[in-house]
Design a protein around this nucleic acid. Structure first.
Lengths: 238, 238
DNA sequence: CTCGCTATCCTTAGCGC
DNA sequence: GGCGCTAAGGATAGCGA
């Protein structure tokens, strides 16, 4: 966009937010219209801002909007097994995009630098230093890649729900099969970047929207580590 | 977008359409997510393609989607006066954007030419020719401007519904007050660029989705001319 | 508030793997 | 099918009228 790169966080300035809202709303609707035209698909959209009295809709024809809503409700809306499946994946999608953005930024920086710093470094470093440095870099790359992959896989499939019973990790595709926790107690302060609604129950499990998540050997795992851990233990769990 | 300018018409090539659909769907969802984050608004979206079994939704959390649909239904969906108001405005929005695109293109062309042709023309033309030419240009500009304005005003407000009774134009904000036509008969072939579903009834009125539009003194008016005509006669009609 | 402008960032069509 | 790349078109933040 123009002039500066935009950081993805709520705009606090009222006037600026309103202007941005109108501009981007127009853009969004144009994109939806284009997708509809180009690919012959049906799109319905409801945009609801506190500043506006009425929700904005696309397409402008109410009947088409309603018929698509009905179609959706018939296919999926009434299926209780699907409800809430994507509650966490939304959060993870943000994380994934942020990580990928960082990767792209890092790549770009390297390209822009075009190695002049590298040659200086090479001339002044011992072989051991170089090996250590390369090893550290490779580890970092692997780390980032595996985190991206685990998040990607996790997002592409429906979210699994986790619980802990008798020191074994329980997981299920159906939230109803994971024993719900009735009394959430503590918000874990050691991980301030956790899901805002995530809490810890009296058994030491993560709780999200009434269902247990997991803790392993008494250690707390932020959601992405938790997923990674799941992939590690899944081989001998099934 | 890349390499070539895209014409806004359905993509017939199956593979290409699918690829474009996926790419643009991603983009659309990203834009929706950004708007949500930046401006703190609620957006719900259902994307339904024939190629996919399930409709794609945004946000991925069904509950949020459902609650926004409910909010919309409470506010507007049940209001019969609003149903169908925007059926024509969708078409007009396309027309408006096409006209504006042409304007921009023409402007650009003039700028790029940077007047060399003009000076040649000026040197070889008589004063009368110049005056006539200027007059013609001014008229064209006014014409385009008024068409854009009328379409713009029309789109910004709810669509009015038209009918003809006793040689007088009838218009109403409520489609139920315009006498519906029960037997649509002829598709007007003289205006191939009319709304695809628009037809002419036995009384010589345009018919769109069961409601009369208008004809004046036996002449057919394409939708935008029709609107222009409405604004001209409205002064002494009320 | 709306419009136009412009610099800059973002999206994406086409291509190759 | 997907991924990565690149060039071109498109969107838009900030500003001024």
């Amino acid at each position: 966009m123009g002039r500066v790169k935009i950081v993805m966080e709520p705009i606090t300035n009222d006037k600026k937010r309103k202007i941005t809202f109108n501009a981007r709303k127009q853009g969004l609707i144009k994109k939806a219209r284009e997708l509809t035209t180009l690919c012959d698909v049906n799109i319905s959209m409801i945009i609801c801002s506190d500043d506006q009295e009425n929700p904005e809709i696309f397409p402008p024809d109410c009947q088409k909007l309603n018929s698509l809503i009905d179609l959706y409700k018939r296919n999926r809306g009434m299926d209780p097994q699907r409800i809430n499946f994507y509650a966490i994946s939304d959060y993870l999608m943000d994380r994934k995009m942020k990580i990928e953005e960082e990767l792209v930024k890092a790549k770009k920086k390297n390209l822009e630098a075009k190695y002049p710093i590298w040659f200086d470094f090479l001339n002044n470093a011992s072989e051991l230093q170089l090996r250590e440095f390369a090893f550290g870099l490779e580890n970092k790359i692997l780390d980032v890649k595996s985190r991206i992959e685990s998040i990607k896989n996790f997002v592409l499939e429906p979210v699994r729900f986790y619980g802990v019973e008798d020191n074994r990790i329980m997981q299920s595709w159906n939230p109803n099969l994971v024993k719900p926790v009735t009394r959430p107690i503590i918000t874990p302060s050691s991980y301030p970047d956790l899901l805002p609604n995530m809490m810890v129950d009296e058994y030491g499990s993560f709780v999200y929207e009434g269902h247990r998540s997991t803790s392993i050997n008494g250690a707390w795992f932020p959601p992405d580590q938790l997923i990674h851990e799941y992939f590690l233990v899944s081989d001998f769990a099934s």
